[in-house]
Design a protein around this nucleic acid. Structure first.
Length: 259
DNA sequence: ACCCAGGAGACTG
DNA sequence: CAGTCTCATGGG
């Protein structure tokens, strides 16, 4: 989205020339102005976290028993962003305490019920629902999606916070402090430590964000170390001690092992 | 039928 | 503040 206008883009590998980005549809009409191209380029750079130099991470990962394998296997992988705060928070709320398969089902129902469809090259793309739309709902409206009543409440309340203007990406980023942003997020009903760190990782892009309670992270560690159980909190703290400064990247690479 | 899932809030000591 | 209990719905 650029303002209220949607732009559908396709990103592909241009080999030595880097990434190839093509505008394939949306609300904008060709010929596109330089401002459109500039906005798209910046969006993709933020989305792929291309502004970040990963060499310090690869340096520490090389000597880390947990990260050595995934870093070799997925070299070049970056933490993919969710630039829209509402979308990042919703995805975190939806993903709480359910398996990923069901989480994807719920997200699809949510988006295809309350989002906007945009067609390009004969395919339908869904824009994420706007907070104004969700803020106007009641839990009864969300019943058919079959998420828990609590999740419905959390989504609607989060939408209202954003619509009020008191919760924005810019406000969370004021002070450039993970702790400050976390404190604000956790004060919202339905946002606990896991979701706060998930949002700080995917949307605010702090490489130090660390959803340490994440079950996927626990299972990935169990897998890499060949354990017959998940690691305890104490073991997690010890194993992640060397990740300082790059916790979100360590987590993201370990998640990737589970696909 | 059973256990678990990219947790959070309420309650207790 | 740190543990424990409860919740709610579907996947495997």
């Amino acid at each position: 989205m650029i303002g209220e206008a949607s732009i559908i883009i396709e990103v592909s590998d241009a080999k030595d020339a880097g990434l190839r980005i093509e505008i394939i549809g949306g609300d904008v009409k060709a010929p596109y102005g330089d401002d459109i191209y500039a906005a798209v380029e910046e969006y993709v750079k933020d989305w792929f976290d291309l502004h970040r130099d990963l060499s310090p991470f690869y340096e520490l990962a090389g000597g880390d028993p947990l990260l050595n394998e995934p870093v070799n296997q997925f070299y070049g992988l970056r933490v993919m962003g969710i630039s829209d705060l509402f979308e990042a928070m919703c995805w975190g709320i939806i993903g709480q305490q359910i398996n990923l398969a069901f989480a994807y089902t719920l997200k699809r129902r949510f988006v295809e019920t309350y989002g906007r469809a945009v067609e390009a090259n004969g395919e339908v793309y869904w824009l994420f629902p706007k907070p104004e739309t969700i803020a106007a709902l009641t839990v009864i409206d969300l019943e058919p999606l079959r998420m828990t009543v609590k999740k419905s409440e959390y989504l609607i309340e989060t939408a209202k916070h954003i619509v009020s203007g008191k919760l924005t990406k810019e406000i969370l980023l004021q002070g450039d402090s993970l702790e400050t942003a976390e404190k604000q997020l956790v004060s919202i009903r339905g946002i606990g430590p896991w979701t706060a760190h998930y949002v700080i990782m995917r949307c605010l892009r702090f490489p130090t964000a660390f959803p340490i309670d994440d079950v996927g992270l626990h299972n990935a560690i169990k897998h890499v170390l060949g354990m017959d159980r998940k690691p305890t909190k104490k073991e997690l703290l010890e194993l992640s001690y060397g990740w300082s400064g790059w916790e979100s990247y360590a987590t993201f690479y370990l998640w990737r092992l589970l696909y």
